[in-house]
């Protein structure tokens, strides 16, 4: 499904690109011929496209050019982050029923090793007589990140937009960050990652965290590449219940894709909190307490929950 969406989007964009290139060119048989590569002949097969001003136009298929991918972000740009942003996440515990679609999407998009997860969903109970609830966790992207403090080689770092990332080309695999993180966020590539050879050959990008490398640490990256494109992280868009909200604290807005809230109002009205506030790590992930729940606490995808607890 995601695959289909992507290819359709690319196709539309390709059309727009071609249309844009044609403006102001000398008239030919097909206006789009001007922007075509030399030697390309019209195939006669037309496709319908939506132009910039909202008109449906027909273009010969042969003149469509794929839009080049956004230039890859350099390591130093990826380490700097996006200026003027401060990314935050809000997780509404009243909406989670442990479907783990977030986890699935994350595992797929980041090629996380089987058995390991960057997004985790825990059955939690605060005290003996209080009600249990499901708690999804991502990396907390702390403002005082204990992992970054202890890293000896600057392999994990905090960006100006608040995101904590890992440079797998830098990580020496000492695992001090894993010991330091109180949220059990980090996982390690104990063996060579279970990914295709082509994927493994790609240059590593801190923003996509792909490809993972043997002997280095991995974790949730807040989908920094998606934020750069102005899109929501994969876990946010994958959740059918709209549990995850993502946004920019400077804009004071968070969205789960279908609903958008003023971040400060949401946190104030619903008594938002952060995990282990007493440790002083200042997470960028906020939780809304599991009150007025949409679902009762049920095993969800964990049918054998009783055995696991």
């Amino acid at each position: 499904m995601t695959q289909d969406n992507n290819s359709r989007r690319e196709f539309l964009l390709a059309g727009l690109f071609a249309a844009g290139a044609a403006v102001g060119c000398s008239p030919k048989k097909d206006v789009f011929e001007a922007g075509a590569e030399p030697g390309v002949q019209a195939s006669g097969k037309k496709v319908k496209l939506l132009s910039v001003d909202g008109k449906v136009i027909e273009v010969d298929e042969a003149f469509l050019k794929p839009v080049p991918e956004l230039p890859p972000v350099t390591n130093s740009e990826a380490r700097l982050g996006i200026a003027g942003k401060k990314f935050v996440m809000v997780i509404d515990l009243s909406r989670c029923k442990n479907l783990r679609k977030c986890q699935e999407a994350c595992d797929t998009m980041h090629h996380v090793n089987p058995g390991q997860h960057w997004v985790k969903v825990y059955p939690m109970q605060d005290a003996d007589h209080t009600s249990p609830y499901w708690e999804p966790t991502t990396c907390m992207h702390c403002d005082e990140p204990p992992c970054v403090k202890v890293c000896p080689v600057d392999a994990t770092f905090k960006r100006q937009d608040g995101i904590v990332l890992i440079d797998s080309d830098r990580c020496i695999g000492c695992r001090f960050c894993m010991a330091a993180c109180p949220y059990s966020t980090r996982v390690f590539n104990w063996a060579a990652p279970d990914i295709s050879a082509e994927l493994a050959k790609l240059p590593y990008s801190c923003e996509t965290s792909v490809p993972q490398k043997k002997g280095t640490v991995g974790k949730c990256d807040f989908c920094a590449d998606m934020s750069r494109k102005g899109e929501l992280p994969h876990c946010v868009s994958a959740c059918p219940n709209g549990t995850f909200f993502f946004g920019d604290m400077n804009e004071d807005t968070v969205s789960n894709g279908s609903e958008t809230f003023r971040f400060s109002d949401l946190i104030r009205d619903k008594a938002g909190y952060r995990l282990m506030e007493d440790l002083g790590t200042k997470p960028s992930v906020y939780y809304l307490p599991p009150v007025s729940r949409n679902f009762p606490f049920e095993p969800g995808v964990d049918s054998d929950l009783k055995n696991k607890l």
């Binding site: 080689v153 990580c171 020496i172 695999g173 000492c174 695992r175 043997k214 002997g215």
Partner: peptide, 14 residues
């Protein structure tokens, strides 16, 4: 104990 011992010199470089 290091996961990537071939990068040991990173300790001095970075």
């Amino acid at each position: 104990d290091m996961g990537s011992p071939e990068r040991f010199y990173f300790l001095f470089l970075y």
